[in-house]
Design a protein around this nucleic acid. Structure first.
Lengths: 156, 156
DNA sequence: GTCAGTGCAAAAGTTTTGCATACAG
DNA sequence: CTGTATGCAAAACTTTTGCACTGAC
């Protein structure tokens, strides 16, 4: 994984610090590591998964699961991260910095593919307008079976 | 609430019985009540919420929470019901009988408006095809502020 | 009669909380 | 220094499971 010297991350970090300051919260090592880990691993983490990864990569920090939960909830409330849940596999968090993107999820293996579609975005705005909603965000998840799992299924 | 003498419900019930039979499962009172309650209350239930409602309406049945969980999971596996999660409010189940519909959710008051959009459905199928997915379903939620809440906000 | 379904209670899993200590501001 | 954040462990919640009994077929 390349070292972070990245305008996008810097901006994210700044806005994070900004939000912390605005809410009189403290900028701690743990909070930064959690943010950074979410950023670097372009994945969707369960709180537990994130916890284990951080424990492994930064054992000296000795992060507690409670801190991970507290931080994730805080990030979600601040709209820095969002959580999604699919099937029985529980809740997963990701950063909400990417402006608009959606998820296609394999029901068999849980793989998540991200995609973006301007046409759909446009329609969404139109629908909201029709119903008198002021649109602030959206969540779209397509469920299906990924190529690999389709092959596997066929083989059985 | 009007009594059920409803073609749509009958059809649902039939397909439910059909699925039960196909899987050598039994048609029990509890299972029917759970299905009926989901159908009559056009809402999105948490397992617990459904449990309490059923306890209240059919105390003589003495349904256990375990049965509610078991049945909901069974319904979801059979694609009769789907579960979605609304933010931190946990997992909610609804019947999947309405062929395709999505949700627009007011972040202020929690109101849920259902809508349907053919153009988006089409695009979704196209996207899935492009990525090699076999699409089995989708979940789309638009978040925003409803007309009433916008007015309220303006008034403050 | 047989075997799946049920309620109950216990267990397993997940998330939050209380508290003493650590550390950012 | 002050007071928030943290780790730990306990508590609270949520969901699943084991078991003896019930009831659908």
């Amino acid at each position: 994984m390349k070292k972070i010297e990245n305008v996008e991350y810097d901006a994210l970090l700044e806005s994070f610090k900004e939000i912390l300051k605005r809410n009189k919260l403290k900028y701690t090592n743990q909070r930064e590591i959690i943010l950074k880990t979410l950023y670097c691993n372009n994945e969707h983490f369960t709180p537990e998964g994130l916890y284990f990864l951080i424990r492994e990569k930064y054992p000296e920090l000795n992060v507690g699961i409670a801190t991970v939960y507290r931080t994730l909830n805080m990030l979600e409330e601040s709209d820095i991260a969002t959580s999604i849940s699919f099937g029985t596999q529980g809740k997963k968090f990701e950063l909400g910095n990417k402006p608009h993107h959606d998820h296609m999820i394999c029901k068999k293996c849980g793989e998540i593919i991200e995609f973006e579609d301007k046409a759909i975005e446009k329609r969404q705005e139109q629908i909201a307008k029709d119903k008198g909603f002021k649109l602030t965000g959206h969540l779209m998840q397509l469920y299906g079976v990924c190529t690999q799992c389709q092959k596997k299924d066929a083989g059985e």
